[in-house]
Amino acid sequence: MILEVAILYVKNGQKELFEADFKTAGQYISSISGYIRHSLQRCIEQDNKYVLLVEWENLEDHTVGFRESEAYKSWKALLHHYYDPFPVVEHFETVIDGRFT
């Protein structure tokens, strides 16, 4: 499993519109093979800052499967105009899982 992490800074005064459009955008990302789940978290200390977490089966599901899809074009058209600056997206893999069984 790969975790995609993006810190999103939304332009001032756009929070409500962004959140509504992000709900719509969920259909695009969730339609991609290898998608597991995603969540959008809003920062408590900085109102226009969010973190997007997306779980993928493997890196290529995001970097190729999603980024080269028609769904990504719709995602981009719906969301990318909200960001300033444009987000850096990074990918992580689990080294230690703190859950005990």
Rank of each mutant, 00 (worst) to 15 (best):
T63C: 01
C43R: 10
Y50I: 01
D97G: 03
L59V: 03
I36H: 02
A20P: 07
F22V: 02
F92C: 00
V64P: 06
S39A: 15
F18V: 01
D84V: 01
W75R: 11
L52M: 12
Y9K: 15
D21E: 07
Y72N: 02
E16D: 06
D97C: 03
K11M: 08
R42T: 03
N48H: 14
H38V: 04
F18I: 04
F18M: 11
V5I: 13
H80T: 09
G65C: 05
T63Y: 02
W75H: 10
H62K: 05
D21T: 10
T94Q: 08
Q41R: 12
K73L: 15
V54H: 02
F92V: 01
S74R: 15
I2K: 04
D97H: 04
K73I: 03
A71E: 14
T24W: 08
V89P: 07
D84L: 05
S33I: 13
Y9R: 15
R37P: 07
G65L: 04
H38K: 12
G13Y: 05
K76E: 15
K11I: 12
V5Q: 09
F86K: 13
E4I: 14
H38F: 12
P87M: 06
A6C: 13
I2L: 05
D47P: 02
W56V: 00
S31V: 07
V89Y: 14
L17N: 13
H81T: 05
F66L: 06
G98R: 06
G65E: 04
V54A: 01
F18G: 01
D97V: 00
G13A: 00
W56N: 00
Y72R: 11
H91P: 11
N12A: 11
D84K: 09
F86H: 03
V54F: 04
F86A: 05
A71I: 07
W75A: 01
H81W: 13
Q41Y: 12
G98P: 07
G65H: 04
L53T: 04
I44L: 14
E90F: 03
V88G: 10
S39H: 14
I7K: 13
D61S: 13
E60H: 04
A77N: 11
P85V: 08
F86E: 13
G98A: 13
Y72L: 10
R37A: 10
A25S: 07
V64S: 05
Q46N: 12
F66C: 00
E70D: 11
Y72W: 10
V54K: 01
I29G: 00
V10R: 11
I44S: 10
F92H: 05
H62M: 05
E45N: 09
D21W: 03
S31E: 13
H81N: 08
E93S: 04
I29W: 05
S74C: 04
V10Q: 05
V64K: 13
E16I: 03
L79I: 08
E60K: 11
E90K: 05
I29H: 02
E68A: 15
V54T: 11
S30R: 10
N58H: 06
N12I: 15
K76F: 08
I96N: 02
K76M: 00
F66P: 00
E60Y: 08
I44R: 08
S33Q: 15
Q27A: 12
I2P: 02
E4C: 03
L78M: 09
K76R: 07
L52T: 06
R37V: 05
Y83I: 00
F86R: 07
F66A: 00
